[in-house]
Design a protein around this nucleic acid. Structure first.
Lengths: 197, 197
DNA sequence: TGTTTGTGCTACGCTACAGTAGCGTAGCAG
DNA sequence: CTGCTACGCTACTGTAGCGTAGCACAAACA
């Protein structure tokens, strides 16, 4: 919860400790995955005593959740004036997130951890839902503008656009190039049709 | 290596042990993920002594690799006469794999493990490459048939088709419905264009 | 300046797990 | 029937990691 952060004027030692701990946790998650993110490793890397970590979080899971939360990126969704422009911008944004640390390195582990950890599962669900929202908005604007059919399913659009990008990151492990993005956006647009459809 | 399997007429006790061990390992991987698939758990579940496990594999990683290998499904790719038919059949096949055990439950963990384990990374690469091959073949047949343009990039087609399906399984966790498959195939087809293109 | 509060440190106890050694037994094949 | 081989079992060693207790110290704060 964010209340804690803004409420009382906290001791600078506390903020420093928390910051160092989370930085180290993120670095470990990114570099060596969930398996290597142990409390002792975080302590060693951050220079903060293990006991101090337990003074701020009840257990390891809570630390890792905080670490993950601390780097969840927010999606941007500017109105570029056309559906194609919006989707392209969005895809480029996602591609950047998918290929640059820290988020990039975190996603595979998060996907797997979400399978058996409900807390992280919720986090992943929030992340992906947040990712789809800009697409919904872009579609809504397109409909309003008369550019595309009112019957367009925004979820379907999001899926067609996000799927191939995540596929590259997680499965085929090919680089996400500008050409690939353009091609994918084109494919999505192709299915949209005009307002008459 | 497969030589061992077919070479000598093996002692039935050996085949029995190996089978029980791998079955237990797969069950554990499927039900509770890579983290829970310990040698001791496999031993307890299979009823085979831990020492016997180490008589057949050098270490835990090797056991898990064998377990994963034992359930990698092979892709089917019948020629239905049209690109659309081929792709639909393929997508339905993949959807089944993505939603039914044991493969379904294994994929998230495999994706994550592949990130830091080169052995499993190779396995995943082989799996996904095997998945894409039928799409390549379908495209090739479509080109030969004059149904679609010779310039069609089969990798792009595979990506557009596989991406959304995997996205549902791994990220949005929505069920893969028949409508969704049809919609996705339609979207892919829409980008193909005719032979004139 | 004195008091409070957060930290570092050492030293724990506990559990889970990897991997091994040696012995006795049971099943297989000739 | 006999030798061979795989197996089960017990008992280890060693390590890694979680989470805690208590004390001394130092930084923040009033």
């Amino acid at each position: 919860m964010a209340e804690q952060v803004s409420r009382d004027p906290v001791d600078p030692r506390v903020t420093r400790s928390r910051r160092l701990i989370l930085e180290a946790a993120v670095a470990l998650l990114v570099e060596r995955g969930f398996g290597a993110a142990t409390v002792e490793a975080i302590s060693a890397r951050s220079g903060v005593a293990k006991t101090t970590i337990y003074r701020h979080w009840p257990d390891k899971e809570a630390v890792l959740r905080s670490a993950v939360e601390s780097i969840v990126p927010t999606a941007t969704a500017p109105d570029t004036g056309s559906v194609r422009g919006d989707l392209t911008h969005f895809a480029e944004d996602l591609a950047r997130i998918l290929t640059t640390p820290p988020t990039s390195a975190l996603i595979p582990g998060l996907v797997a951890a979400a399978e058996h950890d409900t807390g992280l599962g919720r986090l992943l669900a929030e992340f992906t839902a947040g990712r789809r929202r800009p697409v919904h908005d872009a579609v809504a604007r397109g409909v309003e503008r008369g550019e595309i059919s009112a019957g367009t399913d925004p979820e379907a659009v999001a899926e067609l656009l996000l799927g191939p990008l995540f596929y590259r990151r997680l499965l085929s492990r090919m680089p996400v190039t500008a050409e690939m993005i353009e091609r994918t956006v084109e494919a999505v647009e192709c299915t949209l049709g005009g307002p008459s459809r």
